[in-house]
Amino acid sequence: MIATKLFKEFFESEKAGGLMLIFCTLISLLIANSTIGTSYLNFWDIQFSGHSIVEWINDGLMAIFFLLIGLELEREIYKGELSNVKDALLPTFAAIGGIAIPAGIYLLFNFGTTTQNGAGIPMATDIAFALGVLSLLGNRVTVSLKVFLTALAVIDDLGAILIIAFFYTKTLIWTNLLISLGIFALLLVFNRLKVRNLIPYLIGGVLMWYFMLNSGVHATITGVLLAFALPFGNGDEKSTSYILQHFLHMPVAFFILPIFALANTAIILSGSVGEIFTEPYGLGIALGLILGKPIGVFLFAFLAISLKLCKLPEDMNWKSIIGVGFLGGIGFTMSIFITLLAFEDDALINNTKLVILISSLLAGLIGFLVLKLTFKNGEVSN
C-alpha cells in the first residue's frame, strides 16, 4: 500500500533525523561553551536583508518543516491512522490530554506572572526526537505503537500550530493577512480545477509566506496552509502531495532540523542549573514535559476507552501508552520554537531552552526504559 510505504519512509527519515538532532545539539552546546563560543553566537546574529541568520532559519526554513508536517497530517486524515474516525479517536484523545495537562501544570506555577505566556512550551511533541528514541528499541516495538506515536505527535503539532496562530500573534496587519489568505484561496481554486503542476503552488506558497510574515501571524503557518492547498487526489505516487512529501523528507530531516538545532541550542552554560528549575517557568516546563505529558496521554486515552469510543490495540497495553506518553514529553524543536515566540528576554530564552533540553532528555530516557521493559521480541510484556 502507498500509505504504508510512505509511513515507513516517514518513520525511517524521522528516526534518523532524530539521531542527527541529538548530534547537532551536542555539537552546538560544545562550540557555544568553547573558546570560540562568542564568535559562534555572533555568527547566528549576522544580518541579511534585514533579518539575522537565526531569524531566516526560524521564519523561513521552518515554514518548510511545517509544510512537511502539514502534508503528513493531510495524509493521515485521508489515508492513514486518522482516516477512520474510530481509529483516530485514541491518538486524538491522548494528544488532547498531552496538550491540556502540561499547559495546566505550567499555568499552576505561572498564572498571573510575567512568564504566563509560556504555557504553550510543554504542549508539543518533537516527532523526529520521539521517533529517534523509539527507533533505538528496534524490532521489539510493535507497528501499532509506532503508528500511535506518530499520529499522537502529528496531532500534538497541529495543536501547537493552532496555539501559535491564535495565542502568539501580537499585532495583526489585516491587509497583509487578507492578501495571504487570498492567495491561499486562489491555490484552493487551482486544486479544484485539478491543476497538478507544483510550480504555481510553490510560487503561491512563497508569496503567501511573504505576506503572512508581514502580517503579524507567524509565517510558518503558511507551510500548513500550503500543504492542504496541494492536490491529494487518491494519494498515489503520482499525486502532487505525495511527490512533494517524498522530496521533502531528506532535506527536512538532514538539513533544516539540524540547522535549527545548531542555531537555537547555542547556549552558554553559566550559573547554577538547579536554580533555573526552581523558577516558576522552569518548574512548569519540567513538570509539564516529564509528568504532564504521560499523565495527560494516559488519562485521556483511558477515558476514551472506558467510554467505549475506541479500543486499545491488541499488541499494546497500558504500560506502552505510558511509555509513549513519556516520549511525548520530548518537546525540543516545537518547545524551543514556541519559547522564541513566548519570551523576549535573551537570558530567559536561554534558560528556558536549557530546561527544555534537560527535561526532554529525562522524558525520553524514562520513555525508552518503560518501553524496553514493556516489549520483548515485538510482544507485549505485562
Rank of each mutant, 00 (worst) to 15 (best):
K8R: 11
E14Y: 06
L21E: 03
L29C: 02
L29P: 12
Y40F: 15
D45L: 12
D45A: 04
D59S: 13
I69F: 05
E76D: 06
G80N: 07
L89P: 07
I96Y: 08
I99F: 08
I127Q: 04
F129W: 00
A130H: 08
G132E: 03
L137D: 08
N139R: 13
K146Y: 00
T150E: 02
A151V: 02
A153E: 01
D156K: 03
G159H: 06
I164M: 13
F166I: 14
F167Q: 04
T169R: 02
T169C: 13
I173A: 08
L177S: 06
N191D: 00
N197D: 08
P200S: 11
M212D: 01
N214F: 02
G216W: 08
I221M: 14
L225H: 05
A229E: 01
N234K: 15
T240K: 11
S241W: 09
L244Y: 06
I259T: 15
E279M: 11
L283C: 08
A286D: 00
L289A: 07
L291F: 14
V297T: 09
F298C: 04
L303C: 10
E314R: 01
D315Y: 10
G323N: 11
G325D: 08
S335N: 02
I336A: 12
T339A: 15
A342F: 03
A347E: 13
A347D: 11
I358P: 03
S359Q: 05
A363Y: 07
V370H: 09
L371G: 12
L373Q: 12
E379A: 10
